[in-house]
Structures are given as structure tokens and as C-alpha cells.
């Protein structure tokens, strides 16, 4: 497979970036997208050029690191799939593929395709936890009965890997799907009730401080989320926020 890659290159956070075109030959349909990037980088290194920097870790679709805007879609054209799990058979011989970093004021570019997503960490630190007494009399979590449907919903919200595809897809660069998934996974469980008021207020405040945009309910975040996090989470967060403020 012969491809033309148009990739965002940026030497550093303050440097001016630009799209650079690279022809790439010998791409196999069974390669993952990241393996294709590895081949490109090998060619660049052999030519003495700077390789394209991109984030990756597990390559199993669970770490949320491999963030690339591929042909205008976060993680590319395949639904419920991270970039590392995307295979080149989704593309055709002769295709031109545009690869860009996530674009958001709250996700500044560090280099090439790598962005700083520590804003997500700070939102989580603001409230995505439950306080547990560890004095020695810690209660077993399973001693509190939870109805199956709620437990399943909480677990589904907890499958968010924090990759940032929701922000990347949203026309407003809003982080409400991410924040609401983290709020929901606790709001649905009795263990999360004690800190419910502070949690939603603090996490929403931090989300706003980070400079994410406002949700306008386009639903793009849910469609592009590799884990299928649902819009119900945002509705739940909005309702939790109202409850916390009245």
C-alpha cells in the first residue's frame, strides 16, 4: 500500500508548527496505525531526519495515550477504536491521510502530535475519588448491596480512558463527556454519595478553569469516544450540579 501522509510537525511548545507531507510505501493492511507510524519514523531516522513524536504506551486500547486526529476524526474512521487498534486495512492504496494533534487551548502541543493532557489529571484530582477510612476498620466495598443496573452503569462510565477524543471531536473543545463520566461513576454508587456535592462543584470549577469550551449537545463526543461513553453522563452531571447548588 502506498500512502501520502500529511502530518503536523512542531519542534516544541512555543515553536510554530506546520503540516509536512511524507510519501510512504510498503504499508501492509494488517499493520496497526502506530506500526505504520513506526515505519515512517524508521525511514526518517535512516535519512537523518527528526522522527515524528507521538504518544503511545499499551497499544491495547486501554491507556488512552495514542491520540491522533486522523482525517479529521479522533482515532480515525473506525468507531469504538483507539488509534493503536486501528488497522491500515481501513485505508486504501493511494490514500492521503491527514494526521494532527488534539486541538484545544487546554491541551497545548508539546511536540508534533503529543499534547499535554494534564488538565484532565487536575479535573480528576479536584474530586474523582472517594475518601476511605484506612485506620484498620475499613469496610469491605462489597458489603453495601448495589442494584445490578446501577453497578453496570457506574462501571461503564468508569471505562473512560481519559484519551481526550471527546475534547478533540467537540467543535467547542468541551470536556464535559470526560468530566461527567468521572462524576457519574461515583454518583451512581452509594460510596460516592458523601462527597457528591463537593465533587461535582469542584470538578466543574476545575474544568472551567482549564479553559475547555461549553457543551452544546452536538453528540460528537459520544460518537467518537473509543469506549462509547454515553451522553447520559452529561445529563447526569448537569442534574448533579443543580442538586449541589440548591
Amino acid at each position: 500500500m502506498k500512502l501520502t501522509l500529511k502530518i503536523w510537525r512542531q519542534a516544541g511548545p512555543e515553536a510554530k508548527g506546520k503540516m509536512v507531507t511524507y510519501p510512504l510505501d510498503g504499508v501492509d493492511g494488517d499493520m496497526s496505525f502506530l506500526e505504520m507510524m513506526d515505519i515512517l519514523n524508521e525511514e526518517l531516522v535512516n535519512k537523518g531526519e527528526e522522527p515524528v513524536e507521538f504518544d503511545h504506551d499499551c497499544r491495547e486500547g486501554i491507556c488512552g495515550s495514542c491520540n491522533m486526529m486522523i482525517n479529521g476524526q479522533p482515532h480515525g474512521p473506525q468507531k469504538l477504536t483507539t488509534t493503536c487498534q486501528l488497522h491500515m486495512r481501513k485505508f486504501n492504496d493511494g490514500d492521503t491521510i491527514t494526521i494532527e494533534p488534539w486541538r484545544a487551548a487546554a491541551f497545548p502541543v508539546i511536540k508534533d502530535l503529543i499534547v499535554d493532557r494534564s488538565s484532565f489529571d487536575r479535573i480528576q484530582q479536584a474530586g474523582a475519588y472517594v475518601s476511605v477510612n484506612t485506620s484498620g476498620n475499613t469496610q469491605d466495598a462489597n458489603s453495601i448491596p448495589i442494584e445490578k443496573a446501577k453497578a453496570d452503569e457506574a462501571f461503564h462510565s468508569a471505562t473512560c480512558i481519559g484519551c481526550g477524543a471527546c475534547v478533540a471531536a467537540c467543535k467547542n473543545a468541551s470536556a464535559m463527556l470526560f468530566t461527567s463520566a468521572k462524576v457519574s461513576q461515583y454518583a451512581l454508587l452509594p460510596q460516592g454519595e458523601i462527597e457528591a456535592t463537593d465533587r461535582v462543584q469542584n470538578m466543574v470549577r476545575q474544568m472551567d478553569i482549564e479553559g475547555f469550551g461549553n457543551c452544546t449537545n452536538t453528540g460528537a463526543c459520544m460518537i467518537e469516544c473509543p469506549k462509547g461513553i454515553k451522553l447520559e453522563n452529561i445529563a447526569r452531571m448537569n442534574s448533579e450540579y443543580l442538586k449541589a447548588n440548591i
Binding site: M69, G72, Q73, E100, N214, T218
Partner: peptide
Amino acid sequence: KNNKARPVKYSKYSGNANST
């Protein structure tokens, strides 16, 4: 506010793939 949240736009953005 939303425009400020994305100061650098994408060179390619496939909005129709995920929203109306």
C-alpha cells in the same frame, strides 16, 4: 468562549461524521 477554547483550528475536521 467556545472559539477561544480552540485557538488553532484543524486543517481537516470531519464534523459530518459525528454530528449534524
